[in-house]
Design a protein around this nucleic acid. Structure first.
Lengths: 168, 168
DNA sequence: ACCAGATCGTTTGTGCTCAAATGTTTGGTG
DNA sequence: CACCAAACATTTGAGCACAAACGATCTGGT
């Protein structure tokens, strides 16, 4: 009767999932100490950096966050002079977020976010192992019933790294 | 040259990791609507329910949270009459948290937390698949450098489910 | 030209999370 | 006995996250 073993393996898996959660959080806090920016702030400024001027709603969409949350983040980034708000002339409802010169200089020597670490680590794996892991994670997603969660967004924009290294 | 394919698989993996994060959050919010309690509140009350009266610090440790955070959660649970604080007589610095009768009745028909869903789903998998997934997640943890994160706590208390179902 | 409805950014209110500071109690040590 | 360091819970302050409500603006239909 291998029910017992099974339970142990399940426990291991849950433990490791927890560790992944923890690690991502910890990593975000580490970046905080190095740049003076918090994780979300760094994330936001990176998205703006690589996708030009963005509407607030568009930025929120790319970060999977509520617009109301993003407004606060922008407030603080603007307070530090790293980004600036610009009302659009075609549609005066929208506000475009863009980097200031100060923001551009900061971005070049900002540390990687957790995703970067993850991407680089995964790239060192064999192709077969990658496929395996992809399948397994898909199964996990299936268990959680989260197949369609990010409704086919082009979230690749934040993670895709064409050839080799330097996702920065 | 399969560098391109590799990047695609990596992107898929990252996507699915994100989905797992999202799903756990969403799930916590769903529980919120069904019980009137937030995710952390429900989590805290479940831990107290199965591990008897607990010190604040002990509860914080089991939830991987800062004591200051737990104090706020307890405040709100106490405000709803679900738990009660009791100063220890042996050591008057410590405060024991225990369920009220109202809390006990709530706990029996409270919905599963995300972990429960995960555990039940994993249990339906083949033993081989479980081992595979365990190995893969371990690799993920390794990439994140999070091997020793939860410093060998008896966190099993929240997840172990000896024989079959009923992690509740 | 007007009005109903949608969209956009923002504000407000509640809760979670941590770091740092505070106050209390305990257990030693001089 | 007096003092002091450690342990404990709490408070305070800052940031993040969302729901709900709001004012301003744009759009489509009449």
């Amino acid at each position: 009767m291998k029910g017992r073993e099974k339970a142990i393996v399940v426990a291991d898996i849950i433990d490791n999932i927890r560790r992944v959660f923890q690690a991502v959080n910890e990593y975000s806090k580490k970046a905080e100490r190095e740049t003076g920016l918090t994780g979300p702030q760094l994330w936001a400024i990176k998205v703006v950096a690589e996708s030009g001027p963005l509407k607030v709603s568009e930025l929120a969409r790319r970060m999977y966050l509520h617009p109301a949350t993003v407004v606060g983040v922008i407030d603080r980034l603007e307070g530090r002079g790293l980004v600036s708000r610009m009302r659009s002339r075609e549609d005066r409802r929208v506000v475009k977020i863009e980097l200031t010169e100060q923001g551009k200089t900061l971005i070049v020597n900002a540390p990687e976010v957790a995703q970067g670490l993850l991407v680089r680590g995964l790239e060192t794996l064999e192709h077969e192992q990658l496929l395996r892991m992809s399948v397994d994670l898909e199964r996990l997603v299936e268990i959680l019933g989260a197949q369609e969660l990010p409704p086919k967004l082009l979230l690749s924009s934040e993670i895709n790294l064409p050839g080799r290294s330097v996702p920065k």
